[in-house]
Amino acid sequence: MSGIILEVKNLKKYFPVLKGLVFMKQIGLIKAVDDISFTINRGETFGLVGESGCGKTTTAKLILLMEKITCGEIVFDGKKIDQQSDVDLIEYKNSVKAVFQDPYSSLSPRMRVGGIIAEPMVVSKTFSHKEIRERVSTLLDLVGLHPDSNNLYPHEFSGGQRQRIAVARALALNPKLIILDEPVSALDISIRAQIINLLRDLQNKLGVTYLLIAHDLAVVKHMSKKIGVMYLGKLVEVAESKRLYRNPLHPYTQALLSAALPSHPDIRQEEIILSGEVPSPLNPPLGCRFHTRCFNAEAVCSEEEPILKEVEENHQVACHLIKI
């Protein structure tokens, strides 16, 4: 159970900004995701963190093929994903599933739970009615819900239970990769731990791979093997989870981690306060995108764009000031 399951190469997503009522003129590009590359190993969790608007969710949408890719490629399980070829696409769509943030809008209020969970199987047309019914009760059991729940409507469940239903649906076709887009952000703290542990148990049991997108650093730390830090559409640092928390190298990562609450109230840590606002992705700064707010920026930072390079084993940073 090792090897790379998903490889993202130079992925870009630019949204055109149009102006004008009748003759739409393109006046600029929002570089939501700008040239990012990373790999996810089979059976592991890759965490993607960053502040809002940095392109985490757009990355997820690109991998889920919900948005057209401007440039770059996605290699899944050794196969390059081509948005044109139908046969491969169906297989890809069956092996990549998603769980979204809001468990209230991600379940159709007019469908029974059984129907919601069964839908991917019904659509794939490879299961008989009997198989679907059995699989639904297995899945309900797997996520810790009573098998009789399949006849109920989503509104009869709490937020945490709804998220369990969403997870069960995502698991229906035995996917290889599940994209978790802020899976616990909408839940109460007490429920979060349950869902996170459920996701971890499922990973251990089924060997499924996760791409976890979150802004709660504690959650990411707890779940992920590897973490990627994004800033303004760029990956600034990719490292193994433990290494990143012990030794963050990029100034942005340092600032981000210092802003996280410590696990004990008595622990006092120095907080790095960044000045200024996030620059507009419509007109990102030249050179390193972080240099306008960086506390140890030098002349080179505003001139040359740093590339992501390996500074130690399993630790890549995009910063001019880190010398190998």
Partner: peptide, 25 residues
Amino acid sequence: SDFVKLAKIDGCSKTRILIHHIFPN
């Protein structure tokens, strides 16, 4: 809404989304 997005990810056809997801609502 998210449930329509998820239905698309699961490969539901447009007709199916219209009949099973949008119409009941």
